[in-house]
């Protein structure tokens, strides 16, 4: 098993709002290993994005993060701005759902890319330019030299995401965090970007965190998967285990409510009844209890701890019986 690159212990993210505090992430423990693809799946309000924004030091003004995050053994949570900037450039990078908002529309793509190298690596403009052309070619952008002098709006959505990935990889970070990298893209382009991420991981050994709501995307790329609900980790497992032998009712609900092409069409889709959780409330029991088909008295009263089931499979649930139809065993 590879060594751990990033260790998160007891991470909590809280926002103060006019209506009182909102608990976005609670008691999160996890690690990212070198060279792996860690998938984090959850719906809106699950805390999946806020976790990584907190680690990157990019929380909104009213947000606070507590706990410990160590990158290669070194504490990085709530570092001063200067140290964070260096860290973001050199050891970890993040790409977002909408690459357009992450780019300056008034600067050419080349200028934005070379800037990174001039700043973090102290390269000359010429040197940096040559490196950028190489980086664009590695994400399969043809005619890279000419593209450097173009502006972001002249690129299509898929191309922009490629440019973002190339920029993120310029400083050869150990960790690349992808927050819904393909959500805004068409399916055909999404397939290309996923294939690209897979290729880069193999070539450079970069660890990738893939944050998404799409179980299909995770299945394609991830080695391990963490399922989030209401700011908590509810299940963690190796990818084949999670899809084949999940042990949490929420994971089951998610997997069964996705319409899919690889199975015969059913007349009705399975659903998870009820509504997404209200993060301003902190129930004493399991946050999924109101929507859970297997819930019993104890679920209302007591928060289930995250327990190991062996084989690197963790879950937070009181229910011990069998889950619904699991015809496709692992």
């Amino acid at each position: 098993m590879a060594a751990s690159l990033l260790e998160i212990r007891n991470l909590a993210v809280r926002f103060t709002t006019g209506d009182g505090p909102v608990y976005a992430v609670n008691d999160l423990d996890l690690e990212v290993r070198r060279g792996e693809v860690l998938g984090m799946v959850g719906e809106s309000g699950s805390g999946k994005s806020q976790t990584w924004l907190a680690i990157m030091g990019l929380l909104a003004k009213n947000g606070r993060a507590e706990g410990s995050v160590r990158l290669g053994g070194e504490e990085i949570l709530n570092l001063p701005q200067r140290a964070l900037t260096r860290l973001r450039g050199e050891r970890m990078a993040m790409i977002f759902q909408d690459p357009m908002t992450a780019m300056n529309p008034f600067l050419t793509v080349g200028r934005q890319m070379t800037e990174v190298l001039e700043w973090h690596r102290g390269m000359s403009r010429r040197e940096a330019r040559a490196r950028c052309i190489g980086a664009l070619e590695s994400v399969h952008i043809t005619d890279a030299a000419r593209r450097l002098s173009m502006y972001p709006h002249e690129f299509s959505g898929g191309m922009r995401q490629r440019v973002m990935i190339a920029t993120a990889l310029l400083t050869e970070p150990q960790l690349l965090i992808c927050d819904e990298p393909t959500t805004a893209l068409d399916v055909t382009v999404q397939a290309q970007i996923l294939a690209l991420l897979d290729e880069l991981r193999q070539r450079f050994g970069t660890a990738i965190v893939l944050v998404t709501h799409d179980l299909g995307v995770i299945a394609q790329l991830a080695d391990r998967v963490i399922v989030m609900y209401a700011g908590r980790q509810v299940e963690q497992a190796e990818v084949h285990t999670l899809y084949g032998a999940y042990r949490h009712p929420y994971t089951e609900g998610l997997l069964r409510s996705v319409p899919r092409l690889d199975q015969p069409r059913s007349a009705r889709l399975a659903t998870i009844p009820g509504r997404p959780p209200d993060l301003a409330r902190r129930p004493a029991g399991c946050p999924f209890e109101p929507r859970c088909a297997y819930a019993s008295e104890i679920c209302r009263r007591q928060m289930p701890p995250l327990v190991s089931l062996g084989d690197a499979h963790l879950r937070a649930c009181h229910y011990d019986g069998a889950l619904g139809p699991q015809e496709r065993g692992a």
Binding site: Q190, A191, Q192, A219, Q220, Y243, R260, D262
Partner: peptide
Amino acid sequence: RLLLSAVPIPDPALARRRRVAPAREEL
């Protein structure tokens, strides 16, 4: 056919077996 082959499948075994060569050219 291109559209259908690009739809992600929420099953890791199938998804990895079925890796299609994605179309190069963009819209």
